[in-house]
Design a protein around this nucleic acid. Structure first.
Length: 399
RNA sequence: GCGUCGGUGGCAGAGUGGUCAAUUGCAUUUGGCUGUAAACCAAACGCCCUUGCGGCUACGGGGGUUCGAAUCCCUCCCGGCGCACCA
């Protein structure tokens, strides 16, 4: 945050333009927003996250970086932790009904959120709210007033709702209330701009509608693309294809190395702030080198330079050179214990059946001798290290 | 409430009395290859063991029919759709 000046608002047209274009799929209304940014007025930039799962992931970090861009221009970031909305469940990113989360579940999640966000934003310069503040106290009549601003047709025309209805799936009336709440957040904090993913368009527009009807100036909207996850589908907590911001450096690096080649430049653009020209150059080089650089950059962003270097080194020894990592889980075992039992006890295999299968496939290997285990009843009698597949390692000390 | 259709493995979605531990796709795991945990190709993918055309548990819950049920019947729970006249 070196460029940040407490009072000054940066109106350099080039920087403003960069904020409006990098990683921006659509901005509503772009010209209006540009004018506002150039005016020198300090804007209130809203962003909401629902604490639905304990970890934020890289996909969620895309809008957070956009917020950082705004913060660097000197604008006021207003972060809303949707502890109330999380109980309802957004429909925007779901093809199935989202279950209501328990309050306790939400409470434990929201604690960690602000901390994770602090890796990207300067929290001292960020206003943080929980939307329970204003949503919890709304009366039925206030809700009716809000609900009156929208028609049922608006909702059933939404693609994801329509798809579900057509497929004969249930859509709860409760879910339909979600955009109203998100919209009201904008009213409550008097947002000038709201940042979100393109999948949030409907909800973001609801904010404009509600502000206008209530007599406030309508917020502008900046929407970014959705990051593709590890399996080629949209990155989403419920798919299990995410890279969590809390992932250990080594793990984060490894996960980044498993993204598809075609995604590398997109990741560079959306998940780092490396100059676009430099990215273009890196991506014209060897795909593997480019991906390693990407993994390094992102790991550094969330951890440290040292951690990123270590993770990279680990990756090279463990995978590129087929070696073994330095810090292997080490446990003590009685002499003559069954390898199968030991691995199961330490969670490296889920069941005996799985172990047997792995042995049959030649996946279990003793590192010291290089021998593949072929007997499912092999025992461990001397101190040794085992490798299962490519990335499961364990070392046994004999008691 | 009445009628009707449906609830299957992480997800999607077949199967509708035996040969079903259950087709297929996705995800996952492993092997090969390589430029990496990319891509591609191949295999595996409920659990247990004395590894056998072995045992056990499983197709929303419970009960029943049958030599035998994911498949038929009853009942309960959950969901979709339709109906709910007069206002």
């Amino acid at each position: 945050m070196a460029l940040f000046h407490k009072k000054g608002i940066v109106t350099d047209p080039e920087k403003v333009e960069a904020v409006l274009s990098r990683g921006v799929t659509e901005a509503i209304v772009k010209d209006v927003l540009r004018a506002k940014l150039l005016s020198g007025k300090r804007l209130r930039i809203k962003f909401g996250v629902d604490p639905t799962s304990p970890d934020l992931h890289l996909g969620r970090a895309v809008p957070l970086l956009k917020l950082r861009d705004f913060q660097e221009l000197g604008h006021q970031i207003v972060l809303i932790v949707g502890d109330f909305t999380a109980l309802i469940g957004d429909t925007s990113d779901k093809d199935s009904e989202r279950p209501m989360l328990s309050e306790e579940h939400v409470r434990t999640n929201k604690k960690t959120y602000v901390e994770q966000i602090g890796k990207l934003l300067d929290l001292k310069q960020t206003e943080v709210h929980y939307n329970t503040e204003w949503l919890e106290g709304l009366t039925y009549s206030a809700i009716c007033e809000h609900a009156d601003l929208f028609s049922v047709a608006d909702f059933i025309a939404r693609e994801n709702i329509k798809r579900r209805l057509d497929a004969g799936k249930r859509v709860s009336l409760r879910e339909v209330l979600y955009p109203l709440m998100q919209g009201y957040d904008s009213v409550a904090i008097r947002a000038d701009v709201e940042v979100g993913g393109i999948d949030q368009k409907f909800n973001l527009l609801a904010g404009r509608t509600m502000q206008e009807k209530i007599g406030l100036p309508a917020q502008d909207i900046v929407m970014g693309p959705l990051l593709i996850g590890l399996d080629g589908r949209k990155m989403s907590s419920s798919w299990g294809n995410t890279i969590p911001l809390t992932a250990a450096a080594q793990d984060m690096y490894g996960k980044l190395m498993s993204i598809a080649d075609a995604q590398v430049s997109t990741y560079f653009e959306l998940c780092t702030r490396m100059p676009l020209e430099e990215i273009r150059q890196i991506c014209t080089g060897h795909p593997k080198e480019a991906k390693m650089r990407l993994a390094y950059e992102i790991t550094m962003l969330y951890h440290s330079k040292a951690a990123a270097e270590k993770a990279q080194q680990h990756f090279i020894t463990a995978f590129s050179e087929g070696g073994i990592p330095e810090d292997i889980v080490t446990v003590s075992a009685p002499a003559g214990a069954l390898l199968a039992t030991l691995l199961q006890d330490h969670g490296l295999v889920a069941s005996r059946s799985e172990f047997t299968r792995l042995v049959e496939q030649g996946a279990v290997q003793c590192v010291e001798t290089g021998e593949k285990i072929t007997d499912a009843h092999a025992v461990v009698s001397i101190e040794s290290t085992y490798r299962i597949g490519k990335h499961r390692f364990i070392r046994f000390l004999i008691k």
